[in-house]
């Protein structure tokens, strides 16, 4: 019976480590639920919900949460064998009251990409659009942009 006991003894730390990993994953889901619940109520310790701000010269012209972005007219374009759906950048800027500009700077969270992209007005008007991601954020993309140039988790769009 000794070998059996030894094997059980060796298995226990592995099982404890596996349980610890499971606890971490559950905690991650709980934090995610807390974050996504932040949009329902702004009170308590929930972090503020995700939003995209359109700025000019540091001044915020308009801030969009996901619902506000969703209410804008949307286009669907196939890019990298996947349909990307969301408002065009031009439509978003027009909605924010931006009529004249020469270039824009898009800034994202830079967690999963460079998180920055500068576009001239002519480039913006070449079907650059937003797309709603599964994470509950938006990205800026276009068929003519390299995938590496896309900005995920967009936070601000600064107009110059």
């Amino acid at each position: 019976m000794a070998p059996v006991r030894s094997r059980t003894g060796r298995l226990r730390p592995v099982l404890i480590a596996a349980a610890a990993i499971a606890v971490v994953v559950v905690a991650a889901w709980a934090l995610q639920a807390m974050a996504s619940g932040g949009g329902e109520s702004s009170q308590g310790d929930s972090p503020p919900p995700y939003s995209v701000s359109v700025k000019r010269g540091g001044e915020v012209l308009k801030t969009y949460d996901l619902a506000a972005l969703d209410s804008l007219p949307k286009v669907t374009t196939e890019m990298s064998d996947k349909e990307q759906t969301g408002p065009t950048l031009a439509a978003l800027l027009a909605d924010a009251g931006v009529s004249s500009y020469e270039k824009i700077d898009v800034r994202g969270a830079a967690v999963r990409d460079e998180g920055r992209l500068s576009l001239t007005r002519a480039a913006v008007e070449r079907r650059v659009q937003l797309d709603f991601s599964d994470r509950g954020t938006v990205k800026v993309c276009a068929p003519w942009l390299e995938r590496e140039e896309w900005v995920r988790d967009v936070l601000t769009i600064s107009v110059e």
Binding site: V25, W29, L31, Q32, A109
Partner: peptide, 28 residues
């Protein structure tokens, strides 16, 4: 470490937590 780096880089917490459960599950 990625999440911690995001906090240090002042990425909005809400953004870091979005999809964290899904990410943790797929990473595991």
């Amino acid at each position: 470490a990625l999440t911690l780096a995001g906090l240090i880089l002042r990425v909005p917490v809400a953004l870091l937590l979005l999809g964290l459960g899904w990410s943790a599950t797929t990473h595991v």
